[in-house]
């Protein structure tokens, strides 16, 4: 385990129990025992904390991989258009759920969100199959075209989501959609954990397989290929890895932005800056960030809980601005 991984693993080990204690009802460690306390811990706080860790880890690892692939410290896994596609699928489920038998209706949201993510991945793979050629120009043009394809998917999904909102069947559905789009971990249960955890873990595993190829890209695409990197294989690993981590996160928690952008920057100074040395520590740091942010929104003295997605954007957007300034001064 590298130094960065140890630092963030240790931080997570401290944050995790703290987050179980924090909330509207503070639980002192002395209060552990049968009854309501145990119920709150086992059925509310523990799944929520585990889910924060899972989603944060997926977004962090996805961000590190995306920045490595695009060779750009301002990249975010959301750029691939997979998150908006997953969100579109989820929004579709708000329309479809009333038409389904109740047994299916509860599953329609995560299933349709994952379907949206899969559709986004398929779209990207189709475009990528044409652009990530193994020719010298193909590799360079491939990454640029691929980013644009992701943006195209993101705008299309955004427009369709906006359409779904304006045509919402009733005010209740409208508010549900809008609330859900600003991601949150409120009232999540073990069911969401069982959906997201295996997919996210698999996604991080796939991204780890791409790690050394991402290192080679440090030297540019032609040099990377001369070192044995296969552009199509790398692209496939990226699309599948990001699809699984981001898709699973959106399917259970809605859109949570900026984690993938911010986290690799927190990790990089502790590593030798190669993408492969960032993926695992970024997963751990992402877990810390989402867990901490979710604990904070829980204890803020507001009438309704601040949505996690909004809170992270409030932190993330100024951070992005700061990154831009640093980049302009050539310090990034």
């Amino acid at each position: 385990m590298t130094r960065a991984s140890l630092v963030f693993a240790a931080l997570l080990a401290v944050l995790f129990p703290l987050s179980l204690l924090a909330g509207r009802v503070w639980i002192a460690p002395a209060d552990f025992g049968p009854g309501n306390t145990l119920l709150i811990l086992a059925e509310l706080r523990l799944p929520r904390a585990v889910l924060a860790v899972v989603i944060g880890a997926g977004l962090g690892a996805g961000g590190a991989a995306m920045q490595g692939y695009l060779r750009n410290p301002l990249a975010d896994p959301g750029l691939f258009g997979i998150a908006p596609m997953a969100a579109l699928g989820a929004v579709g489920s708000f329309w479809l759920a009333p038409l389904l038998p109740p047994a299916f209706a509860t599953w329609s949201l995560p299933v349709m969100a994952l379907g949206g993510a899969a559709l986004g991945m398929a779209g990207l793979a189709l475009i990528a199959g044409r652009t990530a050629s193994d020719g010298a120009e193909g590799a360079g043009g491939g990454i640029a075209l691929f980013t644009l394809a992701g943006l195209m998917l993101a705008s299309l999904a955004g427009a369709l989501t906006a359409l779904a909102i304006t045509l919402a069947p009733n005010p209740f559905a409208l508010s549900e959609i809008v609330m859900w789009l600003n991601g949150a971990l409120t009232d999540r249960s073990w069911r969401e954990v069982w959906i997201a955890a295996p997919l996210t873990l698999a996604g991080i595993g796939v991204l780890a397989l791409a790690a050394r190829s991402l290192d080679a890209l440090t030297l540019g695409e032609a040099a990377a290929r001369s070192l044995g990197v296969e552009p199509r294989r790398l692209l496939a690993l990226l699309v599948i890895g990001i699809g699984l981590t981001v898709g699973a996160g959106v399917a259970v928690a809605g859109i949570i932005g900026f984690v993938g952008l911010v986290v690799p920057h927190l990790v990089r100074p502790l590593t030798d800056r190669l993408p492969s040395s960032l993926i695992l520590p970024s997963a751990l740091a992402g877990a810390c960030l989402v867990l901490a942010a979710d604990s904070i929104v829980r204890v803020l003295p507001l009438v309704t809980e601040l949505r996690l997605g909004i809170a992270l954007s409030l932190i993330g957007a100024p951070f992005f601005g700061w990154l831009l300034l640093m980049m302009r001064r050539g310090r990034l």
Binding site: R212, D215, T218, L219, G220, A222, S226, R273
Partner: peptide, 26 residues
């Protein structure tokens, strides 16, 4: 075959030794 492109742009500010070690990737 080792290929050295013309003045490549190095994406990350890695240490010199890490950069040289990339040559072992194949």
């Amino acid at each position: 075959i080792g290929y050295l492109p013309q003045s490549p742009d190095i994406a990350w500010d890695v240490s010199m030794e890490s950069l040289v070690a990339l040559g072992r990737l194949p």
